[in-house]
Computed example of a mutant assay.
Amino acid sequence: MEKVVKLTSENGILIFSKSTCCLCYAVQILFQELRVCPLVYEIDHDPEGKEIEKALMRMGCSGPVPAVFINGKLVGSTNEVMSLHLSGSLIPLLKPYQAMS
């Protein structure tokens, strides 16, 4: 849990992911298209990955991955991120992190 809190507090946008997860990839592509560069933390490459998964579930993430944090706050998994995007609420959250074109 400490590792999750530390990573989320140190990074503006953080996606906990697994390298084999297609939903994680979809969220990463969405963020890329919205011109933000989140830190993507592949928990399947971390020896403490199982503990991180459990911590994310305890924090309220509907599935262990993807778990998206913006400005230190849990936004949620794929459904929550896509719902925010479709409602027009995601871009204002990402604005401070968007690259200038």
Rank of each mutant, 00 (worst) to 15 (best):
I29G: 00
S83P: 01
V75Q: 07
K95T: 15
Q98L: 02
Y97S: 00
K18M: 12
S17L: 09
Q32E: 12
F31Y: 14
N11R: 07
C22H: 12
V65Q: 08
F31W: 01
K54Y: 06
E33G: 07
C37K: 05
L93E: 09
A99Y: 08
A26S: 13
N79R: 15
N79W: 09
L14V: 13
T8V: 15
R58I: 00
G88L: 04
K73M: 15
G72P: 05
Q98V: 12
R35I: 02
C21V: 01
Q98C: 01
M1L: 13
V4G: 05
V75I: 15
G60I: 09
K73V: 00
G72M: 11
Y97D: 03
S9L: 05
S17E: 12
E33N: 14
A26Q: 09
L23F: 15
F69V: 02
K18E: 10
V36S: 08
P64S: 13
K54H: 12
Q32D: 08
K54D: 12
S77K: 00
S83L: 13
L74S: 09
S17K: 04
L30Y: 05
E33Q: 10
S19G: 13
G49S: 08
S101M: 07
G76Y: 07
T20M: 03
M59L: 14
K3C: 03
G76D: 09
S17G: 07
I13L: 13
L84H: 09
Y25L: 14
R35L: 07
D46I: 06
L93F: 07
E53R: 00
L23T: 12
L84K: 12
C22M: 10
G88M: 01
G12I: 06
F31S: 04
E2M: 13
K3Y: 00
L94P: 06
Y41C: 01
V36L: 08
S19D: 03
D44E: 00
R58D: 15
A26F: 05
L14A: 01
N79C: 00
L93K: 15
A99G: 05
L39P: 00
E51L: 12
P47W: 11
A99R: 01
D44W: 07
L34S: 01
P38N: 02
D44Q: 09
V27S: 03
L93T: 10
R35T: 06
E51Q: 09
C37H: 07
K6Y: 07
S83M: 06
C37S: 10
K50T: 10
S77E: 14
T8A: 14
A67V: 11
H45L: 11
G88N: 12
D46F: 05
C21I: 09
A67K: 05
C61D: 08
V40A: 03
V4W: 10
G49W: 05
Y25R: 13
D46W: 11
L39Y: 09
Y41F: 15
C24S: 13
K6C: 04
N71R: 11
H45A: 06
L90N: 11
E80D: 11
L74F: 14
S9T: 03
V36M: 09
M1A: 14
S77P: 12
I29H: 11
Y41T: 00
N71C: 04
